[in-house]
Protein backbone atom coordinates (compact mmCIF):
# COMPACT_ATOMS: atom_id res chain seq x y z
CA UNK A 1 0.00 0.00 0.00
CA UNK A 2 1.27 3.49 -0.83
CA UNK A 3 2.16 5.79 2.02
CA UNK A 4 -0.68 8.19 1.25
CA UNK A 5 -3.29 5.43 1.16
CA UNK A 6 -1.93 4.04 4.41
CA UNK A 7 -2.19 7.41 6.16
CA UNK A 8 -5.70 7.91 4.80
CA UNK A 9 -6.81 4.48 6.09
CA UNK A 10 -5.32 5.26 9.49
CA UNK A 11 -7.04 8.66 9.57
CA UNK A 12 -10.44 7.23 8.65
CA UNK A 13 -10.03 4.42 11.18
CA UNK A 14 -9.06 6.83 13.93
CA UNK A 15 -11.93 9.24 13.13
CA UNK A 16 -14.29 6.24 13.13
CA UNK A 17 -13.05 5.09 16.55
CA UNK A 18 -13.39 8.60 17.99
CA UNK A 19 -16.90 9.04 16.61
CA UNK A 20 -18.09 5.50 17.35
CA UNK A 21 -19.19 5.83 20.99
CA UNK A 22 -21.65 8.57 20.09
CA UNK A 23 -23.63 6.08 18.02
CA UNK A 24 -23.59 3.37 20.64
CA UNK A 25 -25.06 3.02 24.09
CA UNK A 26 -25.18 0.63 26.99
CA UNK A 27 -24.15 -2.90 26.14
CA UNK A 28 -22.74 -2.14 22.70
CA UNK A 29 -20.49 0.63 23.97
CA UNK A 30 -19.33 -1.59 26.82
CA UNK A 31 -18.56 -4.38 24.40
CA UNK A 32 -16.52 -2.16 22.07
CA UNK A 33 -14.59 -0.77 25.05
CA UNK A 34 -13.94 -4.32 26.24
CA UNK A 35 -12.77 -5.30 22.75
CA UNK A 36 -10.38 -2.34 22.58
CA UNK A 37 -8.93 -3.37 25.93
CA UNK A 38 -8.27 -6.86 24.60
CA UNK A 39 -6.71 -5.51 21.42
CA UNK A 40 -4.34 -3.60 23.69
CA UNK A 41 -3.67 -6.54 26.03
CA UNK A 42 -2.93 -8.91 23.15
CA UNK A 43 -0.68 -6.30 21.52
CA UNK A 44 1.17 -5.82 24.80
CA UNK A 45 1.65 -9.56 25.17
CA UNK A 46 2.92 -9.65 21.59
CA UNK A 47 5.31 -6.77 22.25
CA UNK A 48 7.37 -8.99 24.53
CA UNK A 49 6.51 -12.62 23.79
CA UNK A 50 5.63 -12.31 20.11
CA UNK A 51 8.92 -10.69 19.20
CA UNK A 52 11.36 -12.40 21.59
CA UNK A 53 9.73 -15.84 21.53
CA UNK A 54 9.76 -16.01 25.35
CA UNK A 55 6.24 -17.20 26.15
CA UNK A 56 4.99 -15.21 29.13
CA UNK A 57 2.30 -17.36 30.72
CA UNK A 58 1.59 -14.96 33.56
CA UNK A 59 0.96 -11.51 32.06
CA UNK A 60 -2.15 -11.28 34.23
CA UNK A 61 0.17 -10.82 37.22
CA UNK A 62 0.97 -7.29 36.03
CA UNK A 63 -2.65 -6.63 35.06
CA UNK A 64 -3.71 -7.62 38.59
CA UNK A 65 -0.91 -5.67 40.27
CA UNK A 66 -1.99 -2.61 38.28
CA UNK A 67 -5.62 -3.10 39.28
CA UNK A 68 -4.76 -3.54 42.96
CA UNK A 69 -2.23 -0.71 43.23
CA UNK A 70 -4.73 1.67 41.63
CA UNK A 71 -7.58 0.44 43.81
CA UNK A 72 -5.66 0.49 47.09
CA UNK A 73 -4.26 3.96 46.43
CA UNK A 74 -7.73 5.30 45.58
CA UNK A 75 -9.63 3.58 48.35
CA UNK A 76 -7.13 3.56 51.22
CA UNK A 77 -5.08 6.67 50.47
CA UNK A 78 -7.65 8.82 48.71
CA UNK A 79 -5.39 9.40 45.70
CA UNK A 80 -7.25 10.41 42.55
CA UNK A 81 -7.44 8.11 39.53
CA UNK A 82 -4.69 9.27 37.20
CA UNK A 83 -1.90 9.62 39.80
CA UNK A 84 -2.90 6.21 41.19
CA UNK A 85 -2.77 4.73 37.68
CA UNK A 86 0.65 6.25 37.08
CA UNK A 87 1.95 4.77 40.33
CA UNK A 88 0.54 1.38 39.29
CA UNK A 89 2.41 1.56 35.98
CA UNK A 90 5.71 2.47 37.64
CA UNK A 91 5.40 -0.21 40.33
CA UNK A 92 4.49 -2.93 37.84
CA UNK A 93 7.43 -1.90 35.67
CA UNK A 94 9.76 -2.34 38.65
CA UNK A 95 8.11 -5.67 39.49
CA UNK A 96 8.64 -6.84 35.90
CA UNK A 97 12.33 -5.92 36.04
CA UNK A 98 12.77 -7.72 39.38
CA UNK A 99 11.04 -10.80 37.96
CA UNK A 100 13.10 -10.52 34.78
CA UNK A 101 16.47 -10.80 36.57
CA UNK A 102 16.04 -14.48 37.46
CA UNK A 103 13.51 -15.62 34.83
CA UNK A 104 14.93 -14.11 31.64
CA UNK A 105 17.90 -16.44 31.97
CA UNK A 106 15.74 -19.50 31.38
CA UNK A 107 14.08 -20.42 28.13
CA UNK A 108 11.20 -22.31 26.60
CA UNK A 109 8.77 -24.15 28.84
CA UNK A 110 10.79 -23.20 31.93
CA UNK A 111 10.20 -19.51 31.35
CA UNK A 112 6.49 -20.15 30.78
CA UNK A 113 6.26 -22.13 34.03
CA UNK A 114 8.16 -19.51 36.01
CA UNK A 115 5.89 -16.70 34.82
CA UNK A 116 2.77 -18.78 35.45
CA UNK A 117 3.99 -19.50 38.97
CA UNK A 118 4.67 -15.81 39.52
CA UNK A 119 1.13 -14.84 38.53
CA UNK A 120 -0.34 -17.46 40.86
CA UNK A 121 1.97 -16.25 43.63
CA UNK A 122 0.87 -12.63 43.22
CA UNK A 123 -2.76 -13.76 43.37
CA UNK A 124 -2.10 -15.64 46.60
CA UNK A 125 -0.19 -12.74 48.04
CA UNK A 126 -2.99 -10.31 47.25
CA UNK A 127 -5.48 -12.70 48.80
CA UNK A 128 -3.46 -12.92 52.01
CA UNK A 129 -2.38 -9.32 52.46
CA UNK A 130 -5.89 -8.63 53.65
CA UNK A 131 -4.87 -5.59 55.71
CA UNK A 132 -4.10 -3.81 52.49
CA UNK A 133 -6.26 -5.53 49.90
CA UNK A 134 -9.24 -6.81 51.94
CA UNK A 135 -8.32 -10.29 50.64
CA UNK A 136 -11.14 -12.35 49.21
CA UNK A 137 -13.76 -9.75 50.07
CA UNK A 138 -12.49 -7.63 47.21
CA UNK A 139 -12.22 -3.89 46.92
CA UNK A 140 -14.96 -1.42 46.03
CA UNK A 141 -13.71 1.60 44.12
CA UNK A 142 -15.37 5.02 43.95
CA UNK A 143 -18.06 4.82 41.30
CA UNK A 144 -17.55 6.90 38.21
CA UNK A 145 -20.44 6.29 35.91
CA UNK A 146 -19.23 7.66 32.60
CA UNK A 147 -18.96 5.10 29.80
CA UNK A 148 -17.42 7.66 27.40
CA UNK A 149 -14.58 8.35 29.82
CA UNK A 150 -13.55 4.69 29.96
CA UNK A 151 -13.96 4.26 26.22
CA UNK A 152 -11.61 7.14 25.48
CA UNK A 153 -9.04 6.29 28.15
CA UNK A 154 -8.83 2.72 26.85
CA UNK A 155 -8.81 3.88 23.22
CA UNK A 156 -5.97 6.28 24.00
CA UNK A 157 -3.92 3.59 25.74
CA UNK A 158 -4.53 1.05 22.99
CA UNK A 159 -3.50 3.54 20.30
CA UNK A 160 -0.37 4.25 22.35
CA UNK A 161 0.43 0.53 22.66
CA UNK A 162 -0.05 -0.18 18.96
CA UNK A 163 1.97 2.92 18.02
CA UNK A 164 4.76 1.81 20.37
CA UNK A 165 4.87 -1.65 18.77
CA UNK A 166 4.83 -0.09 15.28
CA UNK A 167 7.70 2.18 16.28
CA UNK A 168 9.75 -0.56 17.94
CA UNK A 169 9.37 -2.73 14.84
CA UNK A 170 11.33 -0.16 12.85
CA UNK A 171 14.14 0.35 15.31
CA UNK A 172 17.34 -1.53 16.15
CA UNK A 173 15.61 -2.57 19.35
CA UNK A 174 12.85 -4.32 17.39
CA UNK A 175 15.29 -6.16 15.14
CA UNK A 176 17.26 -7.17 18.22
CA UNK A 177 14.15 -8.69 19.80
CA UNK A 178 13.43 -10.70 16.64
CA UNK A 179 17.05 -11.89 16.51
CA UNK A 180 16.63 -13.21 20.06
CA UNK A 181 13.62 -15.22 18.94
CA UNK A 182 15.36 -16.52 15.83
CA UNK A 183 18.60 -17.59 17.51
CA UNK A 184 19.69 -16.11 20.79
CA UNK A 185 23.23 -17.47 20.68
CA UNK A 186 23.80 -16.05 17.20
CA UNK A 187 22.51 -12.75 18.46
CA UNK A 188 24.96 -12.70 21.38
CA UNK A 189 27.78 -13.64 19.08
CA UNK A 190 27.09 -10.48 17.08
CA UNK A 191 27.54 -8.33 20.15
CA UNK A 192 23.91 -7.97 21.23
CA UNK A 193 23.39 -7.72 24.98
CA UNK A 194 20.33 -9.94 24.79
CA UNK A 195 19.61 -9.80 28.52
CA UNK A 196 19.25 -6.02 28.61
CA UNK A 197 17.06 -6.00 25.52
CA UNK A 198 14.78 -8.67 26.94
CA UNK A 199 14.56 -6.74 30.21
CA UNK A 200 13.57 -3.54 28.42
CA UNK A 201 10.78 -5.25 26.47
CA UNK A 202 9.58 -7.20 29.52
CA UNK A 203 9.53 -4.08 31.70
CA UNK A 204 7.63 -2.10 29.08
CA UNK A 205 5.03 -4.84 28.69
CA UNK A 206 4.63 -4.91 32.50
CA UNK A 207 3.89 -1.17 32.54
CA UNK A 208 1.24 -1.40 29.82
CA UNK A 209 -0.45 -4.42 31.39
CA UNK A 210 -0.67 -2.61 34.72
CA UNK A 211 -2.19 0.47 33.10
CA UNK A 212 -4.94 -1.70 31.62
CA UNK A 213 -5.44 -3.34 35.00
CA UNK A 214 -5.80 0.02 36.72
CA UNK A 215 -8.31 1.33 34.21
CA UNK A 216 -10.20 -1.96 34.35
CA UNK A 217 -10.48 -1.74 38.15
CA UNK A 218 -11.90 1.78 38.05
CA UNK A 219 -14.22 0.85 35.19
CA UNK A 220 -15.60 -2.28 36.93
CA UNK A 221 -15.70 -0.48 40.34
CA UNK A 222 -15.22 -3.83 42.11
CA UNK A 223 -12.22 -6.15 41.99
CA UNK A 224 -11.21 -9.30 43.77
CA UNK A 225 -8.04 -11.41 43.43
CA UNK A 226 -9.73 -14.37 41.69
CA UNK A 227 -10.85 -12.10 38.90
CA UNK A 228 -7.99 -9.70 38.16
CA UNK A 229 -5.40 -12.48 38.53
CA UNK A 230 -7.45 -14.95 36.51
CA UNK A 231 -5.15 -17.35 34.63
CA UNK A 232 -7.66 -17.43 31.80
CA UNK A 233 -6.86 -13.78 31.09
CA UNK A 234 -3.25 -14.79 30.43
CA UNK A 235 -4.41 -17.61 28.22
CA UNK A 236 -6.72 -15.30 26.31
CA UNK A 237 -3.91 -12.83 25.52
CA UNK A 238 -1.83 -15.72 24.25
CA UNK A 239 -4.63 -17.30 22.20
CA UNK A 240 -5.64 -13.98 20.62
CA UNK A 241 -2.05 -13.26 19.61
CA UNK A 242 -1.46 -16.69 18.11
CA UNK A 243 -4.85 -16.66 16.41
CA UNK A 244 -3.98 -13.42 14.64
CA UNK A 245 -0.27 -14.04 14.19
CA UNK A 246 2.42 -13.43 16.77
CA UNK A 247 5.40 -11.25 16.04
CA UNK A 248 3.42 -9.02 13.68
CA UNK A 249 1.88 -5.62 14.32
CA UNK A 250 -1.63 -6.40 13.11
CA UNK A 251 -1.80 -10.06 14.20
CA UNK A 252 -2.89 -9.50 17.80
CA UNK A 253 -5.38 -6.83 16.71
CA UNK A 254 -6.97 -9.18 14.19
CA UNK A 255 -6.86 -12.03 16.72
CA UNK A 256 -8.44 -10.01 19.51
CA UNK A 257 -11.24 -8.70 17.31
CA UNK A 258 -11.96 -12.10 15.73
CA UNK A 259 -11.87 -14.10 18.96
CA UNK A 260 -13.58 -11.36 21.00
CA UNK A 261 -16.44 -10.88 18.54
CA UNK A 262 -16.77 -14.61 17.90
CA UNK A 263 -16.91 -15.51 21.60
CA UNK A 264 -19.48 -12.82 22.26
CA UNK A 265 -21.67 -13.93 19.36
CA UNK A 266 -21.40 -17.64 20.15
CA UNK A 267 -22.01 -17.00 23.82
CA UNK A 268 -25.17 -15.04 23.06
CA UNK A 269 -26.42 -17.71 20.64
CA UNK A 270 -25.32 -20.97 22.27
CA UNK A 271 -24.93 -19.96 25.88
CA UNK A 272 -24.26 -23.44 27.25
CA UNK A 273 -22.05 -24.97 24.57
CA UNK A 274 -20.32 -21.93 23.06
CA UNK A 275 -16.91 -22.93 24.43
CA UNK A 276 -17.00 -26.04 22.23
CA UNK A 277 -17.15 -23.81 19.15
CA UNK A 278 -14.41 -21.55 20.48
CA UNK A 279 -12.25 -24.61 21.07
CA UNK A 280 -12.85 -25.98 17.58
CA UNK A 281 -11.99 -22.58 16.13
CA UNK A 282 -8.69 -22.45 18.01
CA UNK A 283 -7.74 -26.00 17.05
CA UNK A 284 -8.60 -25.29 13.42
CA UNK A 285 -6.41 -22.18 13.41
CA UNK A 286 -3.45 -24.03 14.86
CA UNK A 287 -3.85 -26.84 12.33
CA UNK A 288 -4.52 -24.87 9.17
CA UNK A 289 -3.07 -21.42 9.83
CA UNK A 290 -0.07 -22.05 12.08
CA UNK A 291 1.14 -18.48 11.55
CA UNK A 292 -2.25 -17.04 12.47
CA UNK A 293 -4.88 -15.30 10.36
CA UNK A 294 -2.79 -12.23 9.68
CA UNK A 295 0.42 -14.26 9.35
CA UNK A 296 -1.31 -16.28 6.63
CA UNK A 297 -2.32 -13.12 4.75
CA UNK A 298 1.23 -11.76 4.89
CA UNK A 299 2.64 -15.05 3.62
CA UNK A 300 0.32 -15.39 0.65
CA UNK A 301 1.07 -11.79 -0.25
CA UNK A 302 4.83 -12.25 -0.17
CA UNK A 303 4.53 -15.53 -2.06
CA UNK A 304 2.62 -13.74 -4.81
CA UNK A 305 5.24 -11.00 -4.89
CA UNK A 306 8.04 -13.56 -5.13
CA UNK A 307 6.31 -15.29 -8.01
CA UNK A 308 6.04 -11.98 -9.84
CA UNK A 309 9.75 -11.34 -9.42
CA UNK A 310 11.66 -14.63 -9.34
CA UNK A 311 14.79 -14.80 -7.22
CA UNK A 312 18.00 -15.62 -9.07
CA UNK A 313 18.61 -19.35 -9.17
CA UNK A 314 22.07 -20.70 -8.57
CA UNK A 315 24.25 -23.68 -9.39
Amino acid sequence: MARGAKLLTLGVLFAGLVGLPFFLTGYKLRFVTWLLMWVGLASTWNLFSGYTGYINFGPVAFFGVGAYVTAVLMVKAGVSFFPALLAAGVLAGIAALLLGVPTLRIRGAYFAIATLAFSEATRSLTLNLSGLTEGGKGLMLPIYNNAYFFYFVILGLTVAVVATVAFIQRTRFGITLVSIREDEVASQVLGVNTFLNKMAAFGLSGVFLALYGGIYAYWQTFIEPGEVFNVLYSVQMLVMTFLGGSGTLLGPIVGAVVLGAMTEYLWATFTYVYLIFVGVLIVATVLFLPDGVWGYCVQTQSRRRRRAQPAPVLE
Binding site: R172, T176, V178, S179, E182, A186, S187, V189, L190
Partner: peptide, 18 residues
Protein backbone atom coordinates in the same frame (compact mmCIF):
# COMPACT_ATOMS: atom_id res chain seq x y z
CA UNK B 1 23.39 -20.49 13.81
CA UNK B 2 21.71 -18.31 11.19
CA UNK B 3 18.48 -16.45 11.80
CA UNK B 4 16.40 -18.94 9.78
CA UNK B 5 13.39 -16.76 8.96
CA UNK B 6 15.38 -13.71 7.93
CA UNK B 7 16.82 -13.19 4.47
CA UNK B 8 20.54 -13.52 3.81
CA UNK B 9 20.84 -9.74 3.58
CA UNK B 10 19.05 -9.23 6.90
CA UNK B 11 21.31 -11.82 8.51
CA UNK B 12 24.35 -9.95 7.30
CA UNK B 13 23.00 -6.58 8.34
CA UNK B 14 22.53 -7.90 11.85
CA UNK B 15 26.19 -8.86 11.69
CA UNK B 16 26.90 -5.15 11.59
CA UNK B 17 24.92 -4.66 14.79
CA UNK B 18 27.72 -2.95 16.68
Amino acid sequence: CTFPHMTVKENLELGGYI
